[in-house]
């Protein structure tokens, strides 16, 4: 085991897959040798694999996604990068109408081994067009798998699984975790989709969350432990497929659930999770399900405004204390 940053673990996963399978290639804006990706994830890969396999593109999001799709259905395995999650809006047709539906509407004639990487989340004061968390849109689109890794160990194992998956995978990262370190095995490993990771075990309340909010939920759980409240923290790691079992089993044990994501509240993934739990574990709930989300506003710019917008440890703790 070696301690690695999320960024380096991700890069290592990409590199290993490119060495293993020559069909794998990377395309996107500024992923190549001049810049190495806006968050430096692909830095050094163009030097190792050449400019064809780590390919800078024009600023043409819809065609980046669509060309990746066209390459995927004709024998390559593209890992396309959209620089910011907010910019997938420019590629929605290719992602949601084409890639997601292609296997289905053509009656299973083709696989779509496409990975589309992008990054969500606030915390960097880069305002409404570079800070959103839009994963629910894609969860609402049948045909897409969605990975949401928040830790170095997970991001490496999941990117390798994503690249080997025959279906389109939306691979979402978070801006604030690239420098976070975690122990990562030296030997090769893959993490199957649909298996949650339990970061803290507890008996009094279940906290389910994604991205940077998993880190905040762990901090909250550690503080709650000092106050005598035992919280279980679950990170789903993939939203599609979703590990319902780990969540439902946990709720059956704790009887209480707090859902925490950085999304604006209305129509967020937390709403879907709450609905699933009331359908499948209603009788085990001892209190209403609490949702901790951002308010229904665009992401603001100024630091005090943005800090107010993004949920934090204190809000998670107070949500827990309301029901425990």
């Amino acid at each position: 085991m070696t301690e690695k940053t999320y960024r380096d673990a991700l890069k290592e996963g990409l590199r290993e897959e490119m060495l293993r399978d020559e069909r794998v290639f990377i395309m996107g804006e500024d992923v190549g040798r001049n810049w190495g990706g806006a968050f430096k994830v692909t830095k050094g890969l163009a030097e190792e694999f050449g400019d064809d396999r780590v390919r800078d593109t024009p600023i043409s999001e819809n065609t980046i996604a669509g060309a990746a799709l066209g390459a995927a259905i004709t024998g390559l395995i593209p890992v396309a990068e959209i620089m910011f999650g907010d910019l997938i809006t420019l590629a929605m047709d290719q992602v949601c109408n084409q890639a997601a539906k292609m296997r289905y509407m053509f009656g299973g004639q083709t696989s779509v081994p496409l990975v589309l990487r992008s990054v969500f989340g606030g915390g960097k004061s880069i305002a409404s067009h570079h800070s959103q968390s839009l994963e629910a849109w894609f969860m609402h689109t049948p045909g897409l798998k969605i990975a949401v890794p928040s830790f170095a160990y997970d991001v490496k194992g999941l990117i390798k699984t994503a690249i080997r998956d025959p279906d389109p995978v939306m691979f979402f990262e978070h801006k604030l975790v690239y420098d976070r370190k975690e122990e990562v095995p030296e030997e090769e490993y893959l993490i199957p989709f649909g298996e949650a990771r339990v970061h803290r075990e507890g008996d009094d309340v279940t906290i389910w969350g994604t991205f940077f909010m998993v880190h905040k939920a762990i901090e909250a759980a550690d503080e709650l432990a000092k106050q005598g409240i035992s919280a279980e923290v679950i990170d789903p790691r993939t939203l599609v497929p979703l590990d319902k079992k780990t969540l439902i089993d946990s709720v059956k044990k704790t009887g209480r659930l707090v859902l925490v994501t950085e999304e604006t509240k209305t129509g967020a993934t937390t709403a879907e999770i709450a609905a699933i739990v009331q359908e499948e574990a209603f009788d085990w709930l001892d209190a209403p399900i609490k949702r901790v989300n951002a308010p229904d506003t665009p992401v603001p710019f100024s630091p005090p405004l943005e800090q107010y917008f993004i949920p934090d440890k204190e809000r998670i703790i107070s949500a827990v204390r309301e029901i425990v």
């Binding site: 669509g66 799709l69 004709t74 290719q94 109408n97 004639q109």
Partner: peptide
């Protein structure tokens, strides 16, 4: 669509085939 005859797909969204064709050509 018939993939094995070399058809990448017919599409209901006007102009959505061009990026896919570019990608197939890249491939």
């Amino acid at each position: 669509t018939e993939f094995k005859a070399g058809v990448l797909g017919a599409t209901g969204v006007v102009a959505s085939g061009l990026p896919i064709a570019a990608g197939a050509a890249l491939s």
